[in-house]
Amino acid sequence: MLHDIFIAPFQDMFSAPDFLLQVLWEGLVSGILYALIALGFVLIFRSSRIFNFAQGIMVVFAALTLVGLHAMGVPAWICVLLTLGVMFVLAMAIERVVLRPLVGQPDIILFMATIGITLFLIGFGEIIFGGENKVMITEELGIPTGSWTLEPFGGLLILEQKDVTAVVVAALLVIGLLVFLSRTQMGRAIRALGDDSQAALSVGISLHTIWVLVWFIAGIIALVTGIAWGARAGVSFALEVIAYKALPVLMLGGLESIAGAIIGGLMIGLLEKLFEIYWGQPLMGGNTETWFAFVLALLVLLFRPQGLFGEKIIERV
């Protein structure tokens, strides 16, 4: 038993290093997608203290809109622009109809409201686009679909080109976002609102504009995630469950930290894949990916209650 837990998995890893690399690569790719969803959460949480549960359904909704528009015969790149427009309208509508009347309510109420948004979008999306699984328009968007085969350690390592594209695009998006947040006026306004909303309001930063902007950025991130994940697994409402994976990422990385979201996402992606392949499937009947991330985050949190990168929690009576 102890041998199975502590020795055999590592023996497996060293005896087949190419397979280990393949597992790590798979983990890295899903980790990046978790990180992207978590990034959407963090942006909204920092600027408005709203725990936005609707991020997952926004991913689905963006991908569905893109595919749906293309099915109507619109050229692929115009579809992307139109989808961005839809996400902007969605951001405006959410701010106007849901968030504005709920300003200043307790956190849990806003959290519940985002679950309300989630339900609404599920119903709305199913009525407009139908619930069946759809194929992402990968080739039409110019994403390469082939794969590279490497031969490290005399073995075999297959890298799907669309995964490589996803990694590169995600990296560019994150860099772009960091530049936007630190170099532009709007970006600084977002960070100011996150640091101290009262002070930010008093120097003339408009809460409503920033909220629309932040939700729109979350919408852009959702679209990128939707394209990347849709290219791997197809577009359906089942995608929504990957939003749950972003939650342990947030716990691990801290709710306020952008770097934490990225590092946490990669860590969770890698570790849950490793655990599933080397411990979960042989010893526990598989499918451990549904809970591993949560239990890992829970254990980390027991020692660092604010997450690995979160702001230190200082409480006063």
Partner: peptide, 20 residues
């Protein structure tokens, strides 16, 4: 069924707004 989900979602928001 889909309309139901949609209406329940909006009613949740509606009730939260009128009386949190």
């Amino acid at each position: 069924e889909h309309l139901n989900i949609m209406i329940v979602g909006s009613l949740i928001i509606f009730f939260l707004i009128i009386e949190p």
